Computed example of a mutant assay.
Amino acid sequence: MKEKKMDTRNITYFMAVFEHLHFTKAAELLGISQPTLSQQIRLLEAEVGMPLFDRIGKKVVATEAGRLLHQYGMKMLQAEMDAKNAIKELLSEKRGTVRLGVLPSDLDFQLVPLFVEFKTLYPETRLQAFSTIFVREEVLAHKVDLGIGLCGPSDKRLVQIPLGSEPYELFVHSASELAKRREITLEEMTQHALVMYPKGYLGRDLVDGVCREQGFELTTVMEVGSASSLLQLVAAGIGATIQPRDLLKQHPEWSDIVSIPISEPAPVRHLELTYYADRFISKAQQQLSEWLIDFFKSRTV
């Protein structure tokens, strides 16, 4: 008897159930009926010879076999997508989509001029830039093609290109008593009003971590979730903020804000460009990667 082979359609059905752990919701998103989806999952389970999900009442839980299929199913779907993209590029090297994951608030704003330049060169290529604190996870899950995030441990599944380091500095209004300081310590900032990102944002957590190592904690008078809002608050005299040094360089319109270096030990973020090692890289993605590397190199000169 001829052995039946898995096809990517059934894998797609399985992945939808795995992601949502809910057959009805997955069926709605797939545009098929719930009984049809359940039947396809049963056929897939018959193929692998093991249950892929445990159904406990209304709760759906992936089995160990299900988790393994998810791991390799992602590779199957990505391989199919890579093949299609490679063939499409033979028809036109300037079509397709490039998905970029980038740390939120300050970096995504700084990169807008580069995005404009990219769109000029590749007018038919759709560029999607996503703000996320889970850059590496998004790359590994094939949700984005390229990622710019904090440096992490070496991972053989990824290409990891260092983009340099960037120290944090104190931004204050030019009329502040601190504006003429050439340097300041983190601990001194406990005596001044601060506006910061909320706890849980990478930048805030990085600053808080350095403070904890020195045995103190910063307090804030206001917390907002965007870099532009923080700069507006500083310009209004509400308080000072601790942000990556180059953020202010990208906003020359804030001429009434000055930046003061923080003495050691100071918060520093180390950035890297990441993408999946074993996947198709289009010419547009390659061009964007090169531009991103050049952009960050220029900031360290």
Rank of each mutant, 00 (worst) to 15 (best):
Ala193Asp: 14
Arg67Phe: 00
Gly57Trp: 04
Thr8His: 07
Pro267Lys: 04
Ile260Gly: 03
Ala179Trp: 12
Lys88Asn: 15
Gln232Glu: 12
Ile242Val: 15
Met222His: 14
Lys59His: 13
Ala240Tyr: 04
Gln286Asp: 13
Arg136Pro: 06
Ile257Leu: 00
Arg204Gly: 05
Lys2Val: 13
Thr24Gly: 09
Val116Gly: 06
Leu30Cys: 04
Glu166Asp: 03
Leu178Ile: 04
Ile11Pro: 10
Arg126His: 06
Thr219Asn: 15
Pro198Thr: 15
Asp246Ser: 02
Leu247Lys: 02
Phe216Glu: 03
Pro265Cys: 10
Pro35Met: 09
Val116Arg: 13
Met6Thr: 11
Phe216Leu: 03
Leu44Trp: 08
Tyr168Phe: 15
Gly101Asp: 04
Pro113Gly: 03
Lys58Phe: 02
Arg99Asp: 08
Leu107Met: 14
Val135Asn: 09
His192Arg: 07
Gln34Phe: 02
Phe115Cys: 02
Thr63Val: 06
Ala193Tyr: 10
Arg245Phe: 07
Glu124Val: 02
Pro198Arg: 14
Gln214Ser: 10
Gln110Ala: 14
Leu69Ser: 09
Ile262Gln: 02
Arg99Asn: 12
Val172Pro: 07
Tyr201Ile: 02
Ile87Asp: 14
Leu230Arg: 07
Ile262Met: 01
Ala284Gln: 15
Ala227Lys: 00
Thr97Trp: 14
Ala26Ser: 08
Val221Asp: 15
Val234Cys: 09
Leu218Glu: 11
Ala240Pro: 04
Pro265Tyr: 07
Lys94Trp: 01
Ile262Ser: 10
Ser263Phe: 00
Leu127Met: 10
Tyr72Lys: 14
Val17Gln: 07
Phe118Glu: 05
Leu163Val: 12
Met222Glu: 15
Arg136Tyr: 07
His192Gln: 12
Leu140Asp: 09
Gly225Asp: 13
Phe53Leu: 01
Arg245Ser: 12
His192Ser: 10
Arg9Ile: 15
Asp145Phe: 03
Gln78Lys: 14
Arg99Thr: 10
Ala129Gly: 05
Leu247Tyr: 06
Tyr201Pro: 00
Asp155Ile: 05
Pro244Glu: 04
Leu218Trp: 13
Ser229Trp: 08
Val172Ser: 00
Ser154Glu: 09
Tyr197Asn: 12
Phe296Pro: 00
Ile11Glu: 12
Glu177Val: 08
Lys199Thr: 12
Thr300Pro: 01
His22Val: 02
Phe115Tyr: 14
Leu248Asn: 06
Gly73Lys: 12
Asp294Gln: 07
His70Asp: 12
Thr132Val: 10
Pro104Glu: 06
Leu178Gly: 06
Tyr275Glu: 01
Pro35Ser: 07
Leu248Arg: 01
Thr274Leu: 08
His251Gly: 00
Lys88Tyr: 15
Val48Gly: 04
Gln78Met: 13
Gly96Met: 08
Leu91Ala: 10
Glu183Arg: 09
Lys5Ser: 06
Tyr201Glu: 09
Leu52Trp: 05
Glu217Asp: 03
Gln78Ile: 09
Phe18Ser: 09
Leu52Phe: 06
Glu169Asn: 03
Lys143Ile: 03
Ala227Met: 08
Tyr72His: 13
Leu43Asn: 15
Pro198Met: 13
Asp208Ile: 00
Met76Thr: 11
Asp256Tyr: 09
Gln250Thr: 12
Arg157Phe: 05
Tyr275Gly: 00
Ile184Thr: 11
Ser105Phe: 03
